[in-house]
Amino acid sequence: MNTRAIDARGLARTFTPRTGEVRAVRGLDLTVEDGELVAFLGPNGAGKSTSMRLLTTLLEPTGGTATVCGHDIRTASAAVRRSIGYVGQGASAGHHQRVRDELVVQARFHGVPRREAADRAERLLADFALEGCAGRTVSTLSGGQRRRLDVAMGMVHGPRLLFLDEPSTGLDPQSRADLWQHVLRMRREHGTTVFASTHYLEEADVFAERVLVMDHGRVIADDTPAGLKAGLAGENGGSGPPPTLDDVFLHLTGRSLRESTVAAPEPTTEGTLP
């Protein structure tokens, strides 16, 4: 049995809206070992979110194969969903729901018995500094509290692999640092594999053990943050200041704006998994 957290081979997704074909992911080759913390970088429209949606079974691939936690994303989507946590770009919790209720129901969705679900919810509320918000409706939380709740919901069922899609976007620096401390602590305590996309390169530099850079639907770099920076320094012949991960990113993906290439449409009626 494949024990890798993620193993994708030639994974592809093409959208076919009326405006023309969009090849959002073009043959993604990717392996993530158990326990790794991988940062998934790329400019807007590079295919990061579509890749995440493929790997989390939200979208059906139009080419290639992938297993997540040993389960095929096409033929064993329910088994994949049982093994993963997912924190999307939007809010995971319903605005009109209460904080504790959402944690409990998420655990129950994953088959955690009622009493145990309630117990886990209480402990995660404490772990994520949300005890004072347990009885509040989600809409009354601050942005940082909501994001912590989202991550707690992604963890409440004890997933082997946690997908984080731009988890800290829109948060102030304090809330971002706080969120990552929670993620790192949960990872340390539970050995969870973390696969996180982010536009904050300093986060990737500090927190990730490995960085994948994606552009035009493919992975174009795969190394440790230090390895990527050393590689660019070598290309520069050691002249100038030591490169940052921002420098590496711009070197790999260019300086042109990519907003016009953000063409991958929302999955409307095309190929989602049952």
């Binding site: 939200l58 329910a78 969903r81 993963i84 997912y86 995971s92 919790a93 319903g94």
Partner: peptide, 11 residues
């Protein structure tokens, strides 16, 4: 908001 997407990723 994204809450629906979360339920789609649940088993």
């Amino acid at each position: 908001t994204g809450a629906h997407e979360r339920t789609l990723v649940a088993p």
